[in-house]
């Protein structure tokens, strides 16, 4: 049987259950050797120390762990770290540009689009893609396409206002 492993080294017994992941996170190349079970969320938080990405359910049902993989918003809790091999990952730590905060970060602050702040990194990462997807054209569209991000504090109206603000500014 011929298969392609992600590495060419000769595996030892324990190595069989680890995987080497080469990825670019927020523009920086990273190499992780992790348990095959490790999710991208766990690798980001525990291996890379990027704790801005949050675990809210670990079951793909709340959106708190939203990150970008190759520019698309995905849930890092249901993505194996191994599947991020060779991909570009962006997290909340990489949302701001070199010249300052992302306009969404400023708008969230201005519109008080969060309370406890726990869902906020996921909301922001989701919203950044929403703008790119061209789905911020109306409040109804923003609400629908932001519904994958739960906010238990209930800051939805302010999240919509913040996104609307940035979308208008971008026109």
């Amino acid at each position: 049987m011929k298969t392609t492993r992600t590495t060419t080294r000769v595996p030892s017994a324990q190595d069989l259950y680890t995987v080497d992941v080469f990825t670019v996170v927020n523009g920086s190349p990273m190499q992780w050797r992790v348990d095959t079970r490790t999710t991208l969320l766990e690798a980001l938080r525990d291996t890379a120390g990027l704790t801005g990405t949050k675990r809210g359910c670990d079951q793909g049902a709340c959106g708190a762990c939203t990150v970008h993989v190759d520019g698309k918003r995905v849930l890092s809790c249901l993505t194996l770290a191994a599947q991020a091999d060779g991909r570009q990952v962006t997290t909340i730590e990489g949302l701001a540009g070199d010249d300052g905060p992302h306009p969404l970060q400023e708008a969230f602050l201005r519109h008080d689009a969060f309370q406890c702040g726990f869902c906020t990194p996921g909301q922001l990462m989701s919203a950044a893609c929403l703008l790119r997807e061209g789905r911020a054209g109306s409040d109804a569209a923003i609400r629908e396409y932001m519904s994958g991000n739960l906010c238990r504090c209930g800051a939805y109206d302010n999240i919509v206002a913040a996104i609307r603000d940035v979308a208008k500014g971008a026109d």
């Binding site: 049987m1 011929k2 298969t3 392609t4 492993r5 992600t6 069989l16 259950y17 995987v19 348990d35 095959t36 079970r37 194996l80 191994a82 091999d85």
Partner: peptide, 19 residues
């Protein structure tokens, strides 16, 4: 989660054979 081996083939035939 139970520990598992991980492979990532690049051809359909390889994937089918592996499983």
């Amino acid at each position: 989660m139970r520990a598992f081996l991980y492979d990532r083939p690049t051809a359909v035939d390889e994937a089918v054979a592996a499983v």
